[in-house]
């Protein structure tokens, strides 16, 4: 082969997919031809430089727009407006967890976080309302100053909880936008392995239980929360997640959790669930059973 022919074939030495029968001949030529050898070296350097070019990352807008497009298409699929698609059995399919509109998962984290915060607000209110009743004949001695201090404490407490809830929102957005369900599951399992988890770890687990789109991830999060059932925030997280939970398996596990933690606050939610005709039969029975055990 002439030098010109050799040079034409040089790229095939740099890519396995271009392997050529003439490779041996080309290599032999390179060994004895400094000009061709130099050309080969610069070609190889060019390719190395090309592959080493930094990979830019897109702005978060791209993800948001693509997910919005998916959600819009799902919406169109479920709600065929025209008779253009007369055969639309998809629209009749009952809404399952996996078949849920993406809008649900885009909007829901914020709504859920709001719900949790609301749950704490109500929970905190119910404590001073019931506490005096159990105190025997001590009510008239409460001075305005003492009441004021109690209110201050309550407010401070509440603020602390709300702060941790705002981390939850951060959790949910992060989790759902950027990680696969496998990665999220790994995150939950890692959190579960922490011996003395801090508030953030607990919040992440509650976040996963309340918001993760994967039932497997939610179940594992619940499992990881068992050792911390003595914490009010954990019980409240499970209780708040229960009415929104769609998977019967996770629902029943949540009910078991509430029974195990002897959470009296769960009674109204369980009554509601046991009487809900939409709920799975097994779930309703589990709720009924739980009511007798609390």
């Amino acid at each position: 082969m002439t030098c010109a022919r050799i040079r034409e074939h040089l790229p095939s030495l740099l890519d396995d997919r271009l392997a050529t029968a003439a490779a041996r001949e080309i290599r032999a030529h390179l060994a004895g031809c400094p000009d061709c050898e130099r050309e080969f070296t610069t070609l190889s350097q060019t390719l190395i430089a090309l592959d080493a070019m930094p990979a830019p990352t897109p702005s978060p807008r791209l993800r948001a727009r693509v997910y919005a497009a998916i959600a819009a298409e799902q919406h169109a699929l479920r709600n065929p407006v025209t008779s253009a698609e007369p055969a639309a059995p998809v629209a009749r399919k009952p809404a399952t967890r996996s078949g849920r509109s993406l809008w649900f998962w885009l909007v829901q984290p914020l709504a859920a976080a709001a719900l949790l915060v609301l749950g704490f607000t109500l929970g905190n209110r119910s404590i001073p309302a019931t506490a005096p009743v159990t105190l025997p004949s001590a009510t008239p001695t409460t001075t305005p100053a003492a009441a004021d201090a109690a209110t201050q404490r309550e407010l401070a407490d509440l603020r602390k909880k709300v702060d941790s809830m705002s981390q939850l929102v951060g959790y949910s957005l992060l989790q759902q936008q950027s990680r696969s369900s496998n990665e999220r599951l790994r995150g939950v399992l890692t959190s579960a392995a922490v011996e003395k988890p801090d508030d953030k770890t607990i919040n992440d687990l509650i976040g996963a239980l309340a918001l993760d789109p994967s039932a497997n991830v939610r179940l594992n999060a619940l499992e990881a929360l068992y050792p911390h059932a003595d914490q009010e925030v954990v019980r409240a997280g499970v209780l708040t997640s229960l009415p929104r939970e769609q998977s019967p398996l996770v629902q029943i596990s949540m009910i078991d959790f509430l029974v195990a933690s002897r959470d009296r606050e769960a009674t109204p939610a369980l009554q509601k669930l046991s009487a809900n005709p939409q709920a799975d039969l097994n779930v309703r029975e589990a709720a009924k059973r739980a009511l007798t055990q609390l």
């Binding site: 693509v66 997910y67 298409e73 799902q74 699929l77 993406l102 950027s178 696969s180």
Partner: peptide
């Protein structure tokens, strides 16, 4: 029709 799966493909 499982359009959610496109989210995973996007991530990958």
């Amino acid at each position: 029709g499982e359009l959610d799966a496109l989210g995973e493909l996007f991530e990958r």
